[in-house]
Every structure is written in structure tokens, then in C-alpha cells.
């Protein structure tokens, strides 16, 4: 992976690495991707991807409004303004 591609990846990841982290992770990525490439040899025929290891029925809850009395607990530990979470500029 070239430097430019690695930098683009870090930007997508929203990660800022120190110089030593950058050197180590860039080298690790190269080695690990080489290892990942070994699955190319596996003949998987016409098998479909297994998104789950066990068949999941995908039961969904009924879509209806339920009362919830604990919004104060959910907001505890965050900065709030009028029951809204305060966040950075978008």
C-alpha cells in the first residue's frame, strides 16, 4: 500500500497516528493483507456469503410507540441543552 493510499485510508478511518504508530501499522497492514490474500485459493463454488453462522429468522418487534420514562438516565454523563445532546459543529 502506497503512502498516499494509506493516508487516504487513515482519513476515512478518522484516525491520527503518531509517527511510531504509523510506521508499525503500515508495516503490519502489508503483512496481514498478504495473509488475508490466501483465502483467494479456497474454492467456494456457488456458495452464498454467510452473513450469520446460523440461520436467523429476523423477527422484528411491532412498530409502535412505547412510553419511555428514563430519558434522564440516557442523557446522564453527556453535555445537554433542553434534552438534546450537545455535539461539535457539523
Amino acid at each position: 500500500m502506497e503512502d498516499a493510499e494509506f493516508d487516504r485510508l487513515l482519513k476515512i478511518c478518522r484516525l491520527r497516528l503518531s509517527s511510531s504508530e504509523r510506521t508499525a501499522i503500515k508495516s503490519d497492514v502489508k503483512e496481514i493483507l498478504k495473509y488475508f490474500d490466501t483465502i483467494e485459493k479456497v474454492d467456494t463454488g456457488s456458495l452464498k456469503p454467510a452473513y450469520h453462522p446460523v440461520a436467523i429468522e429476523g423477527r422484528l418487534r411491532e412498530d409502535r410507540v412505547e412510553p419511555f420514562d428514563h430519558s434522564d438516565l440516557l442523557l446522564k454523563g453527556t453535555k445537554t441543552h433542553r434534552f438534546y445532546v450537545v455535539g461539535p459543529d457539523v
Binding site: R14, L15, A24, V29, I32, D89
Partner: peptide, 26 residues
């Protein structure tokens, strides 16, 4: 909070450990 979202988010993630960062990248 005066920082833009991406900068803010990037700063928050600085405390991830080395293995977490490696796995995020890969």
C-alpha cells in the same frame, strides 16, 4: 465543541489502543 465534527471525532479516537487502531484500519 468549537471544532468541526471530523476533527472532533478524530481527537476522540486517539485513545484507542494500538490493536484497536490496527483493526479499524484493516
Amino acid at each position: 465543541f468549537t471544532k468541526k465534527y471530523n476533527e472532533f471525532f478524530t481527537e476522540a479516537r486517539e485513545v484507542f489502543g494500538m490493536e484497536a487502531k490496527r483493526r479499524i484500519v484493516l
